[in-house]
Design a protein around this nucleic acid. Structure first.
Length: 422
RNA sequence: GUGGCUGUAGCUCAGUUGGUUAGAGUACAAGAUUGUGGAUCUUGUUGCCGCGGGUUCGAGUCCCGUCAGCCACCCCA
């Protein structure tokens, strides 16, 4: 029989490492709530058209990376490749708009059919944030400070914030025309990929890593110079507010995100030692997206973080992850069935009072049970054998100090309870 | 989707120019004290040598294919 393995690009998060994901999620809940964000959970599959309209028809994600399928009634569905579109759909569907800014966060799996690599999976976990209802540049800075502070508090310090503006609907279009005009005479000198990008989405040419292409682009007009006065002013205000918060950032006029919905501010958080998959969070403003999905003209801004990449980053700097919940009591019965039954019941009593407790069901030797207790990192052990049974006592052993006391049956439960839950 | 590297015990990895029953460390189990863990020592268990085909008297070792992981591109979190 051939073994069935996890499908390509997916992975199991095993019990000994799941605490890392839990830590990052809990940290997010804790910090996001300080900023007023409420959790939202949306389905992991949606209609294809949501992403075609939201992310954009010409993007790689929509063109070749979505897991699409028909359901039994022929509905055109797909696994969500990202979180923002679904959250916006829910925002519209349930009329979540109010006078103030609607602040939402989500966490969960995203799916993209890509060639797997370390830090790039076909199913990966994202934690994301959306702030809907304001076009104020100070909100951009607040959102960037949120990611930034999250990483600091999670213990990841060597991060880089990269910032850019891709302009608004109007001036971006103009810039694209200017850029095309400037590059047109040399198109054939670019690499085949770039030539395709030239027609599909000129802006993406900036992402090319081939030196020859970059040389041409160095002479091309910069987007930050070409955007309209309003967008310039917006960017200037974002920078001013970031300075106010003392957040270091680097302008990167080549930072062009691969999702069409971005307008004005775009940013990325880089952890450079991760190799080519070094963006651990990214986001930007999307002032036209909600309108694009059939709503009013409501501006918004958000970002998403890649949990698996953050785990890689934190592991690489030797992060000490919080231990999983420890075991308070390990019950060891030796010899008679009567001792086992007594402890079996006691185990249940401890658990009912909220004290973690474990017992060996196999009646093994005292030695091997103690070894197990040690491996489970039990704080204390209760030993009950024939000798103790006769005297009406148990042995209460502290696993840290090795100190062992004789405790009467009738005092045992309250004494342990007092120690564990003071 | 393109190019490259790798694939041997649960984990980390040896395995000589193809040669007989495939190794180490670690982990696991038992024992060294017939009722006392963490250290040390002893012993033991664990392998479709990723999968399929080919060359050969003989393949973990060579060749082809395939699958998977990794690296770069691409893309992105």
């Amino acid at each position: 029989m051939e073994k069935i393995k996890a499908v390509r690009g997916t992975k199991d998060i095993l019990p000994h490492e799941v605490n890392k994901w839990q830590f990052l999620e809990n940290k997010a809940r804790e910090i996001f709530s300080l900023y007023g964000y409420k959790e939202i959970r949306t389905p992991i599959f949606e209609e294809i058209s949501l992403f075609v309209r939201g992310i954009g028809q010409g993007t790689d994600i929509v063109r070749k990376e979505m897991y699409v399928f028909d359901d039994r009634k022929g509905r055109k569905l797909c696994l969500r490749p990202e979180g923002t579109a679904g959250v916006m759909r829910a925002f519209l569907e349930h009329n979540l708009a109010d006078n103030s800014i609607t602040k939402l966060f989500y966490t969960g799996p995203m799916f993209r059919y890509e060639r797997p690599q370390a830090g790039r999976y076909r199913q990966h976990t994202q934690i994301g944030v959306e702030a809907i209802g304001s076009a104020e540049p100070s909100l951009d800075a607040e959102v960037i400070s949120l990611v930034y502070n999250y990483f600091i508090l999670a213990g990841l310090e060597n991060i880089q914030v990269e910032l850019n503006s891709v302009g608004c609907e109007k001036c971006r279009g103009k810039y694209k025309d200017i850029l095309k005009e400037a590059l047109a005479k040399n198109v054939t000198a670019f690499c085949p990929d770039c030539q395709e990008r030239f027609n599909l989405n000129v802006l993406r040419m900036f992402d090319c890593k081939i030196p020859e292409c970059q040389n041409f682009l160095n002479e091309a007009p910069k987007i930050t110079d070409a955007i309209c006065p309003d967008c310039q002013a917006h960017l200037a205000e974002v920078k001013a507010h970031l300075d106010l918060l003392k957040i270091n950032y680097k302008m990167n006029p080549r930072l062009v995100r691969g999702l069409d919905y971005y307008t004005r501010t775009t940013f990325e958080i880089i952890f450079s030692s991760l190799g080519s998959q070094n963006a651990i969070a990214a986001g930007g403003r999307y002032d036209k997206l909600i309108h694009e999905l059939g709503g009013d003209e409501i501006p918004g801004i958000g970002f998403a973080m890649g949990v698996e990449r953050i785990v890689l980053a934190l592991d690489s700097i030797g992060k000490k992850w919080p231990e999983m919940s420890s075991l308070e009591v390990y019950n060891i019965a030796v010899g008679s069935q009567k001792a086992y039954e007594y402890l079996f019941e006691l185990t249940n009593k401890f658990r009912q009072s909220g004290i973690s407790c474990e017992i060996d069901h196999r009646q093994r030797s005292l030695k091997s049970q103690l070894k197990t207790a040690d491996k489970l990192k039990a704080k204390r052990v209760i030993i009950l054998g024939d000798q103790e049974l006769e005297k009406g006592i148990v042995l209460l052993r502290s696993m840290n100090t090795g100190v062992q006391r004789e405790i009467k049956f009738e005092e045992l439960f309250d004494l342990v309870k007092k120690e564990v839950l003071p």
